[in-house]
Simulated assay, not measured.
Amino acid sequence: MTTYAPQPARPSGTRPRRLWLIIAAIVVATLVGGASGWLIGSASSGSANSASTPTAPAPAGGLGAPHGPKVIRNGVPSGYTHDQAGAANAAVNAVQVQTAVAHGNADGAETASTWIAASADAHARAALSAATGAPGDDQTSKTPVTTRVTSFAGSATTVEVWIVAVGSSAGIGGGVTTSQTWSTQTYTLNWEKDDWKVVSFRTKNGPQPGDGQSSTGSSVPPLTNGLYTVFIN
Rank of each mutant, 00 (worst) to 15 (best):
V92A: 08
T177C: 00
I232R: 07
P54S: 15
I116P: 07
R17M: 09
V92M: 04
W196L: 07
G64T: 06
E160M: 12
G104V: 00
I172T: 13
T2K: 09
T30S: 14
G206V: 08
D194N: 15
Q84I: 12
G13V: 01
L128W: 06
A29N: 05
P209S: 02
A48D: 12
M1V: 14
T30C: 11
R15T: 10
T55H: 08
T203N: 13
R17F: 13
T3L: 12
L128M: 11
G212T: 14
N225S: 14
V198E: 02
A91K: 04
L19D: 11
G136Q: 01
R15F: 04
A118W: 03
A9I: 11
A88L: 04
V95R: 00
S129P: 07
V76A: 03
A156L: 11
V149T: 15
P209L: 03
W162F: 08
S155D: 13
G68I: 11
P222S: 09
S129C: 05
A65V: 10
R10Q: 09
N93R: 04
G136W: 00
A165E: 15
V101M: 02
S47A: 13
G104F: 00
H123W: 12
R18C: 02
D137K: 11
S129L: 04
S42Y: 02
I232S: 09
I40Q: 08
P221W: 07
A58G: 05
G37V: 03
G174E: 07
S155H: 12
K197V: 10
K142W: 00
A25R: 04
S50A: 15
A48M: 06
P221T: 05
N233C: 02
G173Y: 10
A165N: 02
Q139A: 01
P222V: 07
R10A: 12
Y228I: 12
S129V: 09
D211S: 14
P77M: 06
P16A: 07
T147P: 01
V28R: 03
T147I: 03
L19W: 05
A106R: 05
K197F: 05
L19Y: 03
D138Y: 04
T178H: 14
R10S: 06
Y80V: 07
T81W: 02
T55K: 12
G167P: 00
N93W: 06
S129T: 15
T184Q: 10
A156H: 14
V199R: 08
Q180H: 01
N74H: 10
Q96N: 10
N89E: 13
T99Y: 05
I172F: 07
R15V: 13
G173K: 08
A112I: 03
G133N: 01
D107H: 06
A85E: 14
P135Q: 01
S36E: 08
A65F: 15
S129D: 07
R15C: 00
T229N: 03
P222I: 02
A94S: 12
S168C: 03
G174A: 10
A131M: 00
S219N: 10
P69S: 09
A25T: 11
D138C: 00
A130V: 14
E160H: 12
T81A: 14
H103T: 01
A88D: 02
T229F: 06
P77W: 08
Q185R: 15
Q96W: 01
A170C: 03
P69T: 09
Y187T: 05
T188I: 01
T99D: 12
A118C: 02
Y187V: 04
T158H: 08
T30H: 02
